[in-house]
Amino acid sequence: MSDKVPAKYRSKCRIFADILRAIKDSEQGRVTHLLHKANLSYDRLNYYLGELERSGLINKSADQERFIYSITAKGEKFLVEFAKVEAFGNTFGVEI
């Protein structure tokens, strides 16, 4: 029998929230930092960053041939709402 522990499942909303929190916490919002903080592969991170940008939750800007991401007011609101729902879920033992 294998001792390998299965990876913890993360919902799309949680991944969004993790990326947004990483962008908010980082000063420069660079992809390398986000890769580490959001715990995603480069391809997956790019895919989710694209979705977040299309939804208006983040802004993308270029700085010396590098992309920099920043959180928008809508993104901040998403994080506040997510924190509330997450707390509600945690109260009743449910992961969002």
């Binding site: 729902v85 509600f88 879920g89 449910v94 969002i96």
Partner: peptide
């Protein structure tokens, strides 16, 4: 109502069941 509101925000079926 709080559970429904949470479900409406993030469409988690667990919240819907709750």
């Amino acid at each position: 109502l709080i559970a429904l509101r949470s479900f409406a925000r993030f469409r988690s079926w667990r919240l819907f069941f709750l």
